[in-house]
Structure formats: structure tokens, C-alpha cells
């Protein structure tokens, strides 16, 4: 049963917003250092599912979850689990770029400072390293004092990725990271995601099927709260097992 490759073992989770049943009996295993894409029509529950993985749904007051999510051997929802530690290990990049209204430098340093890292040289090094990994360093190295909100949308999103990398997480969750970006910026983010899987486990929610096909190793197809199919990306996009999946990826609905 113990498989070192598996980072998330999700067993029979159900979720509700108030009375609304949004995730229905979902089980899934997510592998280490791979890109797993979650696709499906809007409102299918894929983003909700993603947010279950680092307990970002805690902030929605009528949200309720049943079932078990194991991260490595740790039950993410057991009372002993500290959601702060969970989110430190499992980072997230959001749909719309959301840099803090602060300098580029402080955007990245914040995550480190809140964990007590004050050493300026160390901060400088990590800021540079994270910006390099996020392929943003060359564009901003002379303007680290500039406000993060002054960057273009694509740059902002890469800044958010750098910010997530800086705290050295094991997993990065992407919630439709390119939906607010133009094609050129999207291509840069996609390249970056493929780079990142060498060091991190990546889970990405996208409404763009080509994107899922391009960047991911595994793909899960969600519809109306059900996980319809989950398999190798290649298989999903060439010989899907389920009729619904086929209809969706061939563009018959969604």
C-alpha cells in the first residue's frame, strides 16, 4: 500500500456549500513530481477540489467536507493537523494574479519573514533564486523596489509563482493560473509549470483543454461534482474510457 510516489491519497470525499452538494464521492491519487491537471466545465467542482488539498476552503463559512485526504501519511483534516503547516507545505497560485500591494522584493520576502527569517543576505538570495525559477529575474532585477501591482498581468502571475516557490513548498496548486492572461503570457507560464515538476508536485485546474494536454502527465475530468475519469493525460485525450469525457474533449459541450 505504501507507495512513495503518491503524495495525495484522496478517499471518498464529499463536500457541500450549505445544502449544495459540490463534490461527490471522489477518490484520487496524485503522484509526486508530476503535473496533474483537473479539467471540466465551469461549476464542476474542480476548483473546490483543489482548495481541499491545502485547506483553503476553511475560509468559506458554510463549507463542509467528509472523507479523507492523506498527504503522505498525514490526514489533512484530522484535528491534530495544523492548517498553517499544511499551507506552508502546499502552496497555491490563484486564478487572478494577486500580488500584495508592496514592492516585488517584499512580495517574495513576506512568506519568509513570517517564518522568522530576517537575515538580509539570506532573504536576498532566496528572492533572487525564486525570481530566477519563476523566469522573472531578468525582467525585474533592476526594479525590485517597484510595486508588484505595477507589473503586467503575466509578470504579476509569475511573481505570484515566485512568491509560492520562495517558502520552499513540496506541492504547488494552480487554480486556472492563465485564465486572466494573454496567449504570450500563458505560454510563459506553461513553460514554467513544466520546469517546476522537476522539483515540485504540481496540480493545475484549467478550463483550457489544450493546456491540460500540453503540460500535464495525468488528467482528471470533473463534471457536476463527479470525477468522471482520471488517467494518463495521453489516454484521456486519445482514447477516453467514458463517453462524457470524449464529448467534452472533442468540444461537444462545455
Amino acid at each position: 500500500m505504501v507507495d512513495n510516489d503518491i503524495v495525495f491519497q484522496i478517499s471518498n470525499i464529499n463536500a457541500w456549500y450549505g445544502e449544495k452538494h459540490v463534490l461527490k464521492d471522489i477518490s484520487m491519487r496524485i503522484k509526486q513530481r508530476k503535473v496533474t491537471a483537473l479539467i471540466g466545465p465551469s461549476g464542476c467542482g474542480k476548483s473546490t477540489f483543489l482548495r481541499c488539498l491545502n485547506r483553503m476552503n476553511d475560509f468559506i463559512h458554510n463549507f463542509r467536507l467528509e472523507g479523507r485526504i492523506l498527504y503522505k501519511a498525514q490526514d489533512l483534516y484530522s484535528p491534530e493537523t495544523d492548517p498553517i503547516e499544511v499551507r506552508r507545505t502546499i502552496g497555491m497560485v490563484f486564478q487572478r494574479p494577486n500580488p500584495f500591494p508592496k514592492s516585488i522584493y517584499n512580495n517574495i520576502a513576506y512568506g519568509l519573514q513570517i517564518f522568522g527569517i530576517k537575515d538580509r543576505a539570506k532573504l536576498d538570495a532566496i528572492v533572487e533564486d525564486s525570481l530566477r525559477k519563476a523566469a522573472l529575474w531578468d525582467e525585474v532585477k533592476d526594479n525590485l523596489g517597484q510595486n508588484g501591482l505595477a507589473l503586467s498581468g503575466g509578470q504579476q502571475q509569475r511573481l505570484c509563482i515566485a512568491r509560492a516557490i520562495a517558502v520552499n513548498p513540496e506541492v504547488i496548486l494552480f487554480d486556472e493560473p492563465c485564465s486572466a492572461l494573454d496567449p504570450v503570457a500563458t505560454a510563459k507560464i506553461e513553460d514554467l509549470i513544466m520546469e517546476l515538476k522537476n522539483e515540485y508536485t504540481v496540480v493545475i485546474v484549467t478550463h483550457n483543454m489544450q493546456q491540460a494536454a500540453r503540460v500535464s502527465d495525468y488528467t482528471g475530468f470533473f463534471m457536476l461534482g463527479d470525477l468522471v475519469e482520471f488517467d494518463d493525460t495521453k489516454k484521456i485525450f486519445t482514447t477516453p474510457a467514458n463517453k462524457l469525457t470524449e464529448d467534452y474533449i472533442t468540444g461537444r459541450f462545455g
Binding site: 506552508r88 512568506g111 513570517i114
Partner: peptide, 15 residues
């Protein structure tokens, strides 16, 4: 204050 600011901070493991 937009909620996205809070989300960004929490996602980094801030209290």
C-alpha cells in the same frame, strides 16, 4: 480590502 490578498497570504502559511 479584496479577499484575494488574504488568500495569497494564507496560501503562504501565514496565520
Amino acid at each position: 480590502v479584496p479577499f484575494s490578498i488574504r488568500e495569497a497570504s494564507y496560501a503562504l502559511g501565514a496565520t
